[in-house]
Write a protein that binds this DNA or RNA. Sequence first.
DNA 1: AAGAAGCGTCGAAACGTTTCGATTCATAGG
DNA 2: CCTATGAATCGAAACGTTTCGACGCTTCTT
Lengths: 344, 344
Amino acid sequence: MATIRDVANLARVSVSTVSLVLRQPHRVSPETRERVEKAVEELQYQLNGIARDLRVRKTDTIAILLHNLSGPFYSELIRGVEEAGDALGFTTLAAGCSKNHDQGSLRLLKEGRVDGAIVLDPTISSPVLLRYARKTLPIVVLDRGLSGELQSDFITAVGSDHESGGYLAGQHLLAQGYRRFALIAGPVNSEHSHLREMGFFRALQEGAVDVTTIPVIHSDFTEQGGIRAMNMLLDHEWTAEAVFSANDEMAIGALQVLEERHFAIPKDVAVMGFDDIRLARYVTPPLSTIRQPMYELGVAAMKQLHRAMEGKTRIPGEMLPVKLVPRASTQSRITKAGDESDVS
Amino acid sequence: MATIRDVANLARVSVSTVSLVLRQPHRVSPETRERVEKAVEELQYQLNGIARDLRVRKTDTIAILLHNLSGPFYSELIRGVEEAGDALGFTTLAAGCSKNHDQGSLRLLKEGRVDGAIVLDPTISSPVLLRYARKTLPIVVLDRGLSGELQSDFITAVGSDHESGGYLAGQHLLAQGYRRFALIAGPVNSEHSHLREMGFFRALQEGAVDVTTIPVIHSDFTEQGGIRAMNMLLDHEWTAEAVFSANDEMAIGALQVLEERHFAIPKDVAVMGFDDIRLARYVTPPLSTIRQPMYELGVAAMKQLHRAMEGKTRIPGEMLPVKLVPRASTQSRITKAGDESDVS
DNA sequence: AAGAAGCGTCGAAACGTTTCGATTCATAGG
DNA sequence: CCTATGAATCGAAACGTTTCGACGCTTCTT
């Protein structure tokens, strides 16, 4: 690879002049400029970005750290970050997390290869984040509790309002006339699941439902987990009319079990999920759920990051509202069928 | 940020000694080593990866370039690359492509920020790839024709066998007893679509079907496009018993149209897709399709890249086999219903 | 006509590492 | 006792840029 020095030699100017031509062309005379440009062309010179980054001490690059790159769930969010970052002049890198944190995405943070990061991966612990966050590398965490644990001038938070989501779900089911519930929760240590559950119960209590009798099964947010949980619920003094699952994946598992065991949905049992993954609209019956504004979350995260990178320091956490998406799986027995209004 | 020099000063040794402690600890005496380690700890020293990359002229990082990061379609593939790369000691970065190629992912290649790349984005033109590929930056293109256009010592190709996929689809439909077909193809300039179509026709011809009468509509690989295409087919002297769509997205669109217009599937019309996206299994009826080995493609790509990075030069292209995934949407009228064997 | 101002160009330092060869010192071999 | 060997450490150069201050020229101002 040709270096700037090669270009300088060929064009018979100094290295600094070549750099000037590249960065601030107006500052060099037309003749010299042309000579340099010709040399650049002839040598197929390409700037070495690494050398530049070293010299100017920034990379114009940010990273998104994901649990695994493969989850379709975050795709909209990533798109939000990308587009917003793009508009601001940043290159966005996504990196999954290898088992080996040292060569995985954390290397980007640790070794200062990016100017900022957005962290989605819940397996990256807060202490680790606290260690790496610094003035020159602010971090936005997505969807972690804006709790006390992460106090740092260089860490800010964006998330959606899980509690309200749960509340909306509860309200909706009540409005549809259901009075007896079961719950498929996420892992016991999942704050999201917990918040959704809290909101759900809050709604039910407002509706004068006795929440103490509601069976709760904790599972793992996967379709398989939903299947297991639903089976357990059904096998254990089943009386519910509606089941609320802390995410769509598990709800879809539950749907399968119910169908297999010949329950009519929503006639015998209503099912409600959370997240509004793409699949939700396509399963039979289409799954009612709570929609997280993934794209907007991405944009919000990028904006916060940008402000932090500009040096702003006490940026308040941001909580974005979620939205009820009613579909056939929770259609009331009261309401006439056929008024599903879900435009694709 | 503390630099290696700060550490050296604090530990009262030279910079080179600190570097030795970090890279080849056995070469320095236990006492010094300990002093240095203490200094590192005290200063919270973190290596500056950029400086290092500059010095050693490599980054141990590769990039995957995607059309947009958000497509769930490639997730398995990415996982394949990641895991394989991980095992080899590389950090994998994924980057979508911004409108502005200069600050988007191509910057990674152009400015030498990675040691290799895997390109999935069909919108990155071959000339561009030819320009950036070099000894120090080999590129693996995925799923482009292994055609003549991309002759370079530093570009290799991996893809799946689209033609055979089309052939399998045709064979399957014939075996199920269908004799009259319609085709929803991809964009006219899509080589994939073209190959799938060729294979499909080859099978039909072997089955003595007159392929010249088969209506073909070109669309854009999206669900909406599938809807439009299916409507056009139906509105135009419809006689087919089975429709083959060049990908699942369009097939799913077609499914919706058929249902809306009260065709029974597969009784009145069979539908077959291509790709086996996650959704395929969940739509009603479940969609028969051709499965591309996405994960394996990723692994194969990473392996090729690795060999290229080691200097190997004329690596032959690799074409991975695809697999028929029969589901209910093409169930024969002859076969008894109920023998669907699709274990999740 | 003398000084100021501006333009175009350049040399050198700096960014933070790694690594090569040199230097010092202690120990072993003869 | 002298030299060869090896270990521990170091200084300096190099990686490829950007940028600051300086220098020489021309042109303008008064």
